[in-house]
């Protein structure tokens, strides 16, 4: 199975003076069980696209096929509950969605909605509380007593607890400290490795280089490119022209090249850069 978008367009506030194109004739096909990064500068339509994966927004025209569902402009919202269980979305700043009196109850909210019994939901909630790196001792605290970073983790646990086949994340690590960010991304990567699809919106090119198998680049609501990280990071001028950048390792390699030390093929990650440098100096001795 795959995730297929066919000529999907979306218009915000149609037939008003505020009409605006959110998506413009977007077509692509993604393989399941991959880690997919979605990049593009501010306002390029990433969040709009993300909300189509679980049909929070329905296309104004075009068609989407994923997880055994077909979504068209006329699909009824009430037919979409099973889709929402299989395809989930973590919004930007998800800590705003917390509402229950305890952390555990909040994480169990999603599983309960999707038909797990109270006992099962509680078990899942405890499991995911630990997975996102929080101590069991906070399970019965109010989510509003936690720090911002802890709230973020609770919110993410609340979405991952019903273990959707496709997990969509809109800048989940924005505003986290570097260690927290690393831990979160490792968690998503491990989730993908266990046979799920992860789609990640990010402004951090290192995350793309470190984790993604596949990259979608958006601009002005259109899909600019759909390719692999090594392809997309090849052309520095092209990236800069579209408001993007290179991962730190590639940046570093580019500067080395300018100073007479070309490393080929271009390293994307710090590990690759290190290996290439070691090989170069060993070979050069």
């Amino acid at each position: 199975m795959s995730i297929k978008f066919k000529h999907v367009s979306y218009v915000y506030a149609p037939a008003t003076p505020f009409e605006q194109k959110g998506l413009d004739d977007v077509s692509f096909e993604l393989k399941e069980n991959q880690f997919i990064a979605l990049i593009g500068h501010t306002g390029s339509g990433k969040s709009t696209l993300m909300q189509h994966f679980n049909a929070l927004l329905q296309p104004s025209s075009g068609e989407i096929a994923l997880a055994g569902h077909r979504i068209t402009p006329t699909t009824k919202q009430r037919d979409l509950k099973t889709l929402r269980q299989q395809v989930s979305l973590v919004f930007q700043f998800p800590e705003a969605q917390l509402f229950e009196s305890t952390v555990l109850a909040d994480i169990a909210f999603g599983p309960k909605n999707f038909g797990y019994t109270d006992a099962e939901a509680k078990k899942l909630a405890l499991k995911w509380l630990e997975k996102v790196g929080l101590p069991k001792s906070i399970a019965n605290k109010s989510p509003f007593e936690l720090s911002g970073g802890q709230m973020r983790r609770v919110a993410i646990a609340g979405v991952m607890a019903y273990e959707p086949a496709i997990l969509c994340l809109d800048e989940p690590a924005a505003g986290l400290d570097p260690k927290g960010r690393h831990m979160m991304l490792e968690l998503f990567k491990a989730y993908q490795a266990r046979g799920h699809t992860v789609i990640l919106v990010t402004h951090n090119m290192d995350d793309v280089a470190d984790y993604a198998d596949d990259v979608l680049v958006m601009e002005h609501g259109r899909l600019l490119r759909h390719t692999t990280p090594s392809e997309v990071f090849k052309d520095r001028a092209w990236l800069l022209k579209h408001g993007l950048g290179q991962p730190a390792a590639s940046e570093f390699a580019a500067q080395l090249a300018e100073n007479g030390l070309p490393l080929l093929p271009q390293p994307l990650t710090l590990t690759a850069l290190t290996h290439r440098l070691v090989a170069h100096f060993k070979g050069g001795e």
Binding site: R78, R84, Q85, L89, V90, F91, Q97, F99, F109
Partner: peptide, 26 residues
């Protein structure tokens, strides 16, 4: 927030009065 809760399976548009008023808490 409504979209975030919908993504977690909340249902704001069906059920009787009691179910709906409960659904509004999130």
């Amino acid at each position: 927030i409504m979209n975030a809760q919908k993504a977690r399976g909340a249902d704001f548009n069906s059920g009787g009065l009691i179910k709906r008023s409960k659904a509004i808490a999130p």
